[in-house]
Amino acid sequence: MPAPSVDPKPAAKSAHINMMTDTIISSLPADGLRTVMRSILAADPTFTTEFELQAKRWLQKTSSASMPQLFTVSKDASAKGSVTISPEFERTQKRIRAMMGCGLGFESLSLLGEMVSQAQDLDFDEESDEGEELMDVLASVDGDIVQAVTSASKALLVGSGKREMTSDEVRIQEGILQTLEEAQRSAEARGMEFMFERGLNVVEKENF
Rank of each mutant, 00 (worst) to 15 (best):
A152Y: 02
L33N: 04
A139I: 11
D125R: 06
D136L: 13
S74F: 00
G191Y: 11
P29R: 03
E126N: 02
S167V: 14
W58E: 14
T23P: 04
L134C: 06
R171P: 04
T84Q: 08
Q118N: 04
S78R: 08
A183P: 01
L134H: 03
S39M: 11
S82Y: 01
V203Y: 04
K9L: 15
L177F: 09
P2W: 05
Q54D: 04
E88W: 15
I96Y: 02
I176P: 00
E188S: 13
D7M: 09
E193G: 05
T21E: 10
S86R: 02
A11E: 10
E182T: 09
L28Q: 00
L180M: 01
V36S: 09
E204K: 15
I172A: 07
D76V: 00
T166Q: 04
Q69H: 05
Q54C: 08
E127R: 08
P10Q: 12
K75G: 01
D144T: 14
M195I: 09
E130M: 09
I85A: 01
L122D: 10
M100L: 09
G143E: 04
S160V: 11
D76T: 00
L33I: 08
S151P: 02
R190C: 07
T48S: 09
P68G: 05
A43M: 13
I85F: 04
A11C: 01
